[in-house]
Design a protein around this nucleic acid. Structure first.
Lengths: 206, 206
DNA sequence: GTGATTTTGTTCTCGCGTTCACAAACTCCT
DNA sequence: AGGAGTTTGTGAACGCGAGAACAAAATCAC
């Protein structure tokens, strides 16, 4: 489920606050969801709670982390070291959640050799070798839209089976490859849409 | 609707490719959705297509842009100039979609005066004055999680009614304020979850 | 001008996810 | 030990969005 990371984060926050046991109500409030939904999600993983008591924070945290594969280290490749790729390489949230950036790749040979966040930028052609060497399963695309599809194809060809795409394009990949898309400006546009609606509503109301 | 930006982007791509008229099938394929869904979404805005012909690309593009409020300029404030804030300030996708970064704010006074993407970093306390001066309705939070709620409160207090939150926290805001959340590592975690499932499935199959 | 064809706009049905509500189970107090 | 009070886990109803299917409308061929 897509909400597991949210629960995990909420549990970590609770744990750091010194909470040992929490009810589904508490955790649901911290995660921003309905408590029934939370209980159903958790029951899908197994019965890790105790009726009349609640959930052991650390125990549940470990169970969710295990289910999500967050107990192991995931090597990750980032392709495209522009502004976004730079920020992603430096983003501490990846490392703290078990993701290790093993390589930064860029097609522009003027960037090769440059060190970003302790990792050297290498040519895009090294992709296959890096994937094989580190057993990389997850790739991040932070290139311009025009290059994204080609990068994705070569990633799949090299053996990568999960892609996180920041380029504003729809990627066509074969079955068995998971693609997740994040579009930074889309979110802003949705907000602008709501603002527009609000403004329009006020206008017509007057 | 949240899919409007996707349609707009697909239309822009089609327009740049020289397409003057397109069917719902074409546009749906470009946007990566079902054609019936697309037609239903568009019909919600009005009847901008011609039966037997399709949609005029530029006309539809303008109509969607107008509906979304993308025809006007939206002033935006970014709070928190770390790695992420830096990348966001430099991100060209904002400017090209009608968003203008009018101010960069940070609580750390060592950053004040620094210029990022042509905009000077200013103290967080200037928020209220900036919002009033530029008529800012949209704020972006790129601070650490611990500071996010406080920043959000002050944003709302200053008159901002839409917040894009990159900090990994659930924000509590009053009614009438729209919050959109982007969690970069959450997406990676979802992908890792699927990888984990795949690996586990293979294991049990053997 | 009339029929064939294409494509939109809309209605209807289906399925999934969310939420409510309650029984089972555990703890605590007396 | 037994009852009162909590809290989980789950069965059932509700609602919403997605996709299929069809009617209305416009173009094209003859």
């Amino acid at each position: 489920m897509a909400r597991l990371p949210v629960y995990l984060r909420a549990l970590t926050t609770l744990s750091e606050a010194g909470t040992a046991v929490c009810s589904s109500e508490d955790l649901a409030a911290a995660a921003g969801v309905n408590s029934a939904k939370l209980r159903k999600d958790l029951s899908y993983l197994g019965s890790y709670g105790t009726r009349g008591v609640g959930y052991d924070v650390d125990y549940l945290r470990y169970q969710i982390a295990r289910e999500m594969g967050a107990t192991r280290d995931w090597p990750v490749v980032i392709v495209g070291i522009g502004n976004l790729g730079h920020a992603l390489a430096n983003y501490s949230g990846f490392r703290s959640r078990g993701f290790r950036v093993v390589a930064l790749l860029d097609a522009d040979d003027r960037r090769h050799g440059e060190t970003v966040a302790g990792v050297v930028v290498r040519p895009f052609d090294d992709l296959r070798a890096i994937v094989r060497e580190h057993g990389v399963a997850i790739g991040v695309i932070a290139t311009p839209a025009a290059a994204a599809q080609d990068v994705a194809d070569q990633m799949v060809d090299a053996g990568i089976s999960s892609i996180l795409n920041f380029a504003p394009t729809v990627l066509n990949v074969g079955p068995g490859v998971a693609v997740s898309k994040v579009d930074l400006s889309k979110e802003l546009q949705v907000l602008a849409y709501h603002e527009q609606r609000k403004a329009h509503a006020q206008e017509t109301a007057s």
